[in-house]
Amino acid sequence: MGKKIGIVAFTLELCITLALCEYYSKTHPVSPKQQVVTNLHFFFHDTLTSPNASAVLIAKPTLTGDDSSSPSPFGSLLATDDPLTLGPDPNSELIGNARGMYVSSGKHVPTLTMYVDFGFTSGKFNGSSITVFSRNPIMDKERELAVVGGRGRFRMATGVALLNTYSVNLTNGDAIVEYNVTVYHY
């Protein structure tokens, strides 16, 4: 009998506790911030060759086809710490780094799936970043990638990055890519 009373008391206490508890906090009225649109223009330098490689192979597939001559064959995973500059010249002003990874995800058409954080280290956006997670069909001269987030001045960012290949070495994979990014943030 005592065991039944204990179970009933515990059940009653649990029901009351659950009824009074909430898994969220109440919404407090705030002054909504106005959404801001920022346009960014910079160059991304992806270098696979030594001694100054900024992208390195971290996983390689077992190949059965003849595409092994590619610098990043289908299934390759690379980590990046690519410089971002104001101009296409690698010696132009450094404004940040693109850190993340990409996988060669196109079996028949060279395509990268990129997860990269573009962190800015100078100027108005110093300490802020935007994040891109998107498919990049690298053989297209112009392409569009999704901006899916950000931090700092780009908190809650969304947008689009329009890419234009400035130069590419098809033998070793080194590339310079122009980015025109439209970012919506608060």
Rank of each mutant, 00 (worst) to 15 (best):
G6E: 14
I7D: 06
I7C: 03
A9S: 11
L14H: 01
T17V: 14
L18G: 05
C21V: 03
Y24Q: 08
K26F: 09
P29I: 14
V30D: 06
V30W: 05
Q35S: 12
Q35N: 10
F44Q: 04
T47F: 14
S50H: 04
A53E: 06
A53M: 02
S54Y: 07
G65V: 10
D66F: 12
S68Q: 09
P71L: 04
S76I: 15
L78Q: 02
A79P: 01
A79T: 12
D82M: 08
L86R: 14
L86I: 14
N91I: 06
G96Y: 09
N97L: 11
A98K: 09
R99K: 09
G100E: 15
G100R: 15
S104A: 13
S104H: 01
H108W: 15
V109F: 15
P110I: 05
L112Y: 11
L112Q: 07
Y115N: 11
V116A: 13
V116R: 02
F120T: 07
T121F: 03
T121M: 04
S122Q: 14
G123A: 01
K124R: 08
S128H: 06
I130Q: 00
S134I: 09
I138M: 10
I138N: 03
M139W: 08
D140T: 02
E144A: 07
R153A: 12
T158K: 01
G159W: 00
L162H: 06
Y166H: 15
S167N: 12
V168S: 08
V168H: 04
N169A: 15
L170P: 10
D174K: 03
T182C: 04
Y184S: 01
